[in-house]
Amino acid sequence: MDKSHSIKRTIWIVLGSIGTLIMLDGVTMPLRSNAMTTIPVHHLLHTGMAVGAGLLALALTWNQPASTGEQGGWVWPATLAPALSLFLMWPTKYAYLMTHSWLHVLDHLGIAICSVLAIYAAQKFTRGLGWPMLALVVAMNAGAAGGFGLTRGIPTPIRADATASQMSVPPSILGARGTSRVATEFCAPGQQPFVPSLASKQ
């Protein structure tokens, strides 16, 4: 029993240390590199930090006893911290942060703290809840890379009279084969493709 406890403890100390290192690496990244990456890549960096933060949070709670009741107060940071961390990933502020390294470090630190807090609080709320929260926080950060802030911006307005080859929709929206598929799958030969306009009325 004691040996098993000791092994678990050691494993969690190792995992927690690895998590802390990963997280700190992400937090201090702006001090080592100011190279402007794309917004999706930046979101993926946050994902890595969340993995580290999650390991740290779970390591801090590894021997939490099973409880018969719920620790009600912890549910608030567990559900609100992920949303707060997303606000810290505001895509248009990256250009400014890239030129202010320490501010960028603070921003990353905020994201890391939110991630630790969400997972730690979920686990404190009820043992076992930290694991899905870790997966969700990581997935949320990775998901943000899919479309929260486009590096290339919204496509230019598409005219109904444009030919398929003239359309300037970025691959993130249309897909690599999208343009040709519009023409081949949705139009009769020689017919102009119809694509709803995304033009702003404002």
């Binding site: 505001w90 895509p91 899919g146 479309g147 929260f148 802030g149 486009l150 929206i173």
Partner: peptide, 10 residues
Amino acid sequence: DPEVQIDPLW
């Protein structure tokens, strides 16, 4: 902040 663009399909 309307400058922040979002992928419509996403």
